[in-house]
Design a protein around this nucleic acid. Structure first.
Lengths: 265, 265
DNA sequence: CGTACGTTTGATCTTTCTCAATAATGGTGG
DNA sequence: CCACCATTATTGAGAAAGATCAAACGTACG
C-alpha cells in the first residue's frame, strides 16, 4: 500500500475531462487528492453486495467489472471498468451496495477517503459537476447495456460490447487503435451479454470467419470497424464524449462517430 | 397549462423522502418550487433521444416509461415511472438525451425550470443530496432490470417486473396493497422484459393458472405474494427504501422485505 | 354496428442452451 | 526440458425456450 503516489490519478482526470471542462486548477486539485495505492489480484472483490463503502476506489491499472448474482446463482456483468474509472460513485450515497465490483485482471486501485471527495466537491463546483456527469454517463451505459441484452441477437450483442470497449479505451488514449486486449474469457463474455460461454464461442468464431474480427488469444482487432459497428448497431451518442475519440480515430471514424462529433461542435 | 398548482409536488417530496431525510423546511422549499402543470395524452413523448432538456419534468399523475429503439426498430423499455418520479435528472447534465421518455397513460406533468432546481440545490444541501440519491437509486433499478433481462427466464422476468412495480407503488402510498392497475398492454410488457407480446401472454396465463396472479383486464393482484417474489427472485435491497413499505404491508411483508426492513433498522 | 386495438390460441421454426467430449494453452514442480 | 494439471477454447448432438406467423376472439368506442 503506497500513499500519495504522484501521477496515479492522471487517469481519473483524463476520464472526467472527456465529458466536462476542467480548469488547470481543478485538475491539480484532483491530482493532489490524498489516496493510497494498492494492487489487487485477478478475481479479487473490491466491493460486495451489502457492503457500505467508506472510500472511493479509482481504477488505475487493469480491468474490473460490476456484476450481480441471481438467486439461481447465475451472474450478470453490468459494466466493464477501465483505467481512470471511479468505481464507486454509484454506491457512495446509499446505505448498502447492491452489486459487486470485481477485478477482471490484476491491477492497481487508488482509494480516496470519501471525506476528501466531499471536500473537493464543496470547494470546486466544476469538479462536482464533472463527477455528476461521469455518474450520469455511467447510467447511460447501463441503459445501452440493457438494450443490447434485451433486444439484440447474440451476434450484435457481442459486436456491440466489442465496439463499446474499443471506443472507450480509445477515447481515453489507452490503445494504439489497432488491437485490443480483451480482459475476459468467454465465460465472462457470456455473463456480460446474457449468453452461455459455448454460444459466445460460436459467435466469435463466426465473426472471425466473416472477417469482422481477428483474434489472437484474447487480443482482438477489427479489420472492418465500420462494418462491425453497423452490425452491432453501435452509436456512441450514449457515451457522451465531448470531442469524440483520439485524433487518429477521428480521421478514420465510423460514420456514426463522425455525425456525433459534428453534432457536438 | 396551469402555473403554480399548490400540492402538485407532494408526490415528489414523498418520493425523495423514501431514501433521504428531509427537514420540514426542505420539504417546504421543494413544494414551493415554481412550476407549470400540463396534461399529456397516452403515448405522447416527454423527451426524445437527441433533445437537450431545459426543464425538469416531474410526473404527477399517470405513468411513463423510458425506452430506446434499436437500429432494427425494436424497442427496449428501460424503466417505468410512477407519480412522484423526477423524469429527467438522468439527462439534465448531458448535451443530448440518449433515450426517450413517453407517457404510458394519460397523466399530468409538472415542469420545473432547471434554474430553479440549481438554486434549490445550492441553497439546501439536504435536497441536493436527496436528488443525487434518487438518481443513484434509479441507476440501481437500471442494473436490476439488466439482470432480469439477461439472466432470468420469461416467467421470473415478468414476475420480477410485477413485484418491483407493486413494491414501488406501495412504498409511495399509491395503492391499497391489493390490486394494481398495470399501466401497459402486453406488447409494452414484452418491450420491457425483452420478450414478444405473444410469449408475455402465455406466461401471464400460466402465472394465472398457477394461482400466482389474478387478473381482471389490466388490474393484477397477487394471491400469494411471497411465492411470487420467490419465483421472481425479487429482493428489494436495490430499491434502497429507507423504512420499507407502508405499515400495512410491513405487517404482512415478504420474508425478503422483512429482512430488509430489519436490516435497515 | 363496425372498426380498431388488444388478447388469446395453435402450429411451426430458430436461436440459444445443455450436456458431453476433445483439444489447446499456460503454468508448475521435478 | 518434460510430465502433469488446471483452465479455457472448441466442437457436436439433442433439447428447450422463446420467436414468428396466422387466425380468431373480445371489447371499447365512435
Amino acid at each position: 500500500m503506497t500513499p500519495f503516489q504522484p501521477g496515479a490519478l492522471d487517469a481519473l482526470v483524463r476520464n472526467l475531462s472527456r465529458h466536462s471542462e476542467l480548469s488547470n486548477e481543478d485538475e491539480a486539485a484532483i491530482l493532489s487528492l490524498p489516496h493510497t495505492l494498492r494492487t489487487f489480484e485477478e478475481k479479487s472483490f473490491l466491493l460486495r453486495e451489502g457492503d457500505h463503502p467508506t472510500v472511493c476506489p479509482i481504477l488505475i491499472r487493469g480491468y474490473a467489472c460490476r456484476h450481480k448474482v441471481t438467486g439461481g446463482g447465475s451472474r450478470q456483468i453490468l459494466s466493464l471498468n477501465i483505467p481512470g474509472d471511479a468505481l464507486d460513485f454509484q454506491n457512495l450515497l446509499v446505505e448498502e451496495a447492491d452489486h459487486n465490483i470485481q477485478m477482471l485482471t490484476r491491477g492497481e486501485v487508488a482509494k480516496i477517503p470519501v471525506l476528501e471527495i466531499s471536500r473537493l466537491i464543496e470547494a470546486r463546483p466544476a469538479v462536482a459537476q464533472a463527477i455528476m456527469v461521469a455518474t450520469m454517463v455511467e447510467s447511460a451505459m447501463f441503459r445501452e447495456w440493457t438494450v443490447s441484452v434485451g433486444r439484440r441477437d447474440a451476434r450484435s450483442r457481442i459486436a456491440h460490447l466489442l465496439c463499446e470497449f474499443a471506443y472507450r479505451v480509445d477515447s481515453r488514449g489507452l490503445s494504439d487503435g489497432e488491437t485490443y486486449e480483451l480482459p475476459m474469457n468467454q465465460e465472462e463474455l457470456g455473463d456480460a451479454t446474457g449468453l452461455t460461454a459455448v454460444h459466445v464461442n460460436r459467435v466469435l468464431k463466426r465473426l472471425e470467419a466473416e472477417g469482422l474480427i481477428a483474434r489472437n488469444r484474447r487480443a482482438i482487432s477489427f479489420p472492418d470497424r465500420e462494418c462491425l459497428a453497423e452490425l452491432a448497431d453501435f452509436t456512441p451518442r450514449y457515451l457522451h464524449v465531448r470531442d469524440g475519440v483520439s485524433p487518429r480515430l477521428r480521421r478514420a471514424a465510423l460514420p456514426s462517430v463522425r455525425d456525433f462529433v459534428a453534432a457536438a461542435c
